[in-house]
Amino acid sequence: MTAIIIQLLIGGVLLGGLYALIAFGLSLIYGVARVLNFAHGTLLAIAGIAASVMSAAWGLNPLLIAAILLPVFFAFGWLMYVFLLEPLKARNPMQTVVGTVLVTVGLLLILSDLAAQLAGPTNRNIRLDLDVFAFGGIIVSTTELYILLGIVGLTLALHAILTRTWFGRAVRAVTQDSVGARICGVRAGAIHAATVAFGSAIVAIAGVLYTLNFPVNPYVGFELTVKAFTIIILGGIGSLPGALLAGIFLGVAEALTGFFWSSDWAPGLSIMLLLAILILFPQGFLSRSAT
């Protein structure tokens, strides 16, 4: 039974870590720029599809693919903010919120259908036929180890960027007190744009990692966005450690539910947890100041 539990934990942590990576960018974008980006999961799907196409066509290494996609998605995020979202800031707060939702939902639909037209609607992934390690009834594939390594590496890099760089300090300053940050010389508008760009770049890397183990198609994005919203609510909006903890918690809970109860119930678990946490811990596991 111990081996089974460990096996379930490995699968749960892997999927949960990927959920957390998706949630990081979403959490950051909402925490700083106050943008509810419903197209966030779709960006992951498009990054995954692009990665799959590049892998199949040119046989590129996933690391190289991530390096190519990173600046592309950073630029896309920046342009998305400047041309589609920033103009909404001139409206009253209610119109800004509603407008943001409408724009990002519209973007989700356009990007999904555009990706389906360009790359086809079928599922895609990156096939890495790597070794599998088995010890004491526990089986781990090299691909899973790479993904885990990627999750850990990206989480540490994000933590370092947000705590040890000028950009990170500026982000936190704008999040905590936008007016105060401006008085100190931080251009809030530029920080908002950079944050949306940064969040989009993170999800591009998450897309490559996700596609190594799970298939993506142009329409999988919304489902992932909902999952990411659940995680940032569980973990506390704007909290990086909270999102990581919530993601892993959700992934492990799904895996355990699949074994001890039924796989049928695993996807619905996130909604049940969401409701429970909203009632019991309305601030999430960790408060936003933790970032």
């Binding site: 089974i4 096996q7 699968g11 999927l15 799970f214 074994f259 039924s262 796989s263 119930w265």
Partner: peptide
């Protein structure tokens, strides 16, 4: 017999059964 939802990503529970 194991039923699963169409959105399931992690099948480790079902596979171990």
């Amino acid at each position: 017999t194991e039923h699963f939802a169409g959105t399931t990503k992690n099948f480790s529970g079902a596979i171990l059964k």
